[in-house]
């Protein structure tokens, strides 16, 4: 997993709220002031429970959702800027750029392969459409060649170009989705649960293919998934989200060996391990209660209602996300001593 030390994408205090009709206040606080950077050629994994804001964060970075505040810097250029003031409110009117060139550079692969492909279009048309939007083919022949080349690259046959999505298995449909994303020669891809809908035996095929594409094309990934073992495998670093906030970030094997945030510790202890002897001896940290609603998140540390170590301070003050060991970040008052 080659990694250059150049930063391709950086987000600072990125925030996304969804207003709720008929209700005053900020609405659904889906992404709460998240900051991180991704090196060129790197894979950053993003994990956390359902509804914690992973998809929203991925889409907000691509500006498929308009951010509520913070900034997004792509390859040195701020593509969105609306810094937060001392009161935590965005300062003023957002500055942004024409997204068209970035739409090509930044792509997304979706969780549900069948729902993300138009059933009335052939696979060739689906891939061709992406090429046309960004005018990436010089001629008809060039376009056809590109389509064939892409199909081969993702492990499909060139004859597959004339078939419709429903004629493919889930794993093959996901390959089509990947071919479509690659058609526009992107640099950065948000992979939103790209393998969750696939059989175990097919998941590893797609993971390997994503890795091969990354090496060959120098791609940078934000890899969102539930399955921590796959995320650890594919990512250089992993970020852990809880209720809209990033609570921990670190090198992936280091984070697995040595999680420092109480929520990460819980999450890791809950992952069932495919090893019967190990699983008999493992101690689980079982959390009480449900994840609170992002419409009305707890004050202070958002994890305090379920954290076994919570103190009065945790209810009052939001812990700062900072670097505790080189490259290992977390937001927890316990670590501040």
């Amino acid at each position: 997993m080659a990694k250059e030390e150049k930063i391709l994408l950086e987000i600072k205090n990125l925030r996304k709220y969804f207003p709720v009709k008929g209700i005053k206040g900020p609405g659904v606080q889906a992404v709460q002031d998240v900051s991180f950077f991704i090196h060129k050629g790197e894979t950053l994994g993003l994990v956390g429970e359902s509804g914690c804001g992973k998809t929203t964060l991925g889409r907000t970075i691509l500006r498929l959702y308009e951010p509520t505040g913070g900034s997004i810097i792509y390859d040195g250029t701020p593509i969105y800027e609306n810094p937060l003031g001392p009161e935590g409110t965005p300062l003023g009117k957002a500055k942004s750029v024409n997204m068209l060139p970035y739409r090509r550079k930044m792509q997304i692969i979706f969780q549900d392969p069948s729902a993300s492909l138009d059933p009335r279009m052939t696979v060739g048309e689906i891939i061709g459409e992406a090429i046309d939007i960004h005018k990436l083919a010089a001629s008809k022949a060039d376009r056809a060649d590109r389509i064939k080349e892409l199909l081969k690259k993702v492990g499909l046959n060139t004859e597959h170009a004339n078939r419709y999505p429903h004629e493919f298995s889930g794993g093959q449909q996901q390959r089509v989705g990947i071919a479509r994303a690659l058609a526009v020669k992107p640099e950065f891809i948000v992979c939103d649960e790209p393998i969750s809908a696939l059989d175990v035996s097919i998941q590893s095929q797609v993971v390997n293919m994503l890795e091969d594409m990354q090496h060959e094309l120098g791609l940078t990934y934000l890899f969102i998934a539930h399955d921590l073992s796959v995320v650890r495998h594919i990512s250089n670093r992993i970020g852990v989200m809880y209720l809209g906030s990033l609570v921990e970030l670190g090198e992936s094997y280091e984070l697995n060996r040595h999680p420092i945030h109480p929520y990460t510790q819980t999450l890791l202890s809950a992952v069932p391990v495919p090893d019967p002897k190990l699983s008999r001896t493992r101690q689980r940290i079982v959390l009480e209660g449900d994840i609170p609603s992002p419409m009305n998140p707890p004050s202070g540390c958002r994890f305090h209602t379920r954290c076994p170590y919570a103190t009065e301070k945790c209810k009052m003050e939001t812990p700062v996300f900072k670097e505790h060991e080189p490259g290992h970040w977390a937001a927890c008052h316990l670590l501040d001593k």
């Binding site: 999450l267 202890s269 992952v271």
Partner: peptide
């Protein structure tokens, strides 16, 4: 989610 799954399995 894995944390809920852990509760249910127990």
């Amino acid at each position: 989610d894995v944390t809920i799954q852990a509760q249910i399995l127990e």
